[in-house]
Amino acid sequence: MKIRVEEIEQTDEIEVIIKGSKDNEDVKEIYRSLLYFESVILGKTNDKTVSLPLSQIYYFDSVDNKTFAYDKNTVYDVNLKLYQLEEKLVNTPFIRVNKSMIVNTRKLKTFKSTINGRMEATLINGEKVKISRSYVPLLKEKLGGKR
């Protein structure tokens, strides 16, 4: 794979062209990664609507039919249902880990199992997230393993 950066002065816009077969797995992976950096979600905090880059979001969770997005320090109110987010984020590192939570796999630090057979993941900001057994096969797939 050749990586080339063409320098253009006096521009803020970045253009990325991927040359290769559309069916190539590497091309797909690069496309997914770029999509992740490019995509934003609208969220509300302190009555202000802000656009949140996906790469900054740690996880989404749903409480009392309301969806929230969490970055390192702030909580944002998101105007989408969890299943809508799940559909929207299908080609990104985000994955559903339990009934009420979608996690950014790039923000995961470690996995741990508890004595009663539960699984939890620690995020890079130290927060702990419960992982349901039923979502483990999909999580494995997302991390590059087999189901």
């Binding site: 483990v136 494995k140 991390l143």
Partner: peptide, 15 residues
Amino acid sequence: YKDEVKHLNELLEEK
């Protein structure tokens, strides 16, 4: 489950 967790941690490291 510990085996499963070990496998997931390995995958995460690789990623």
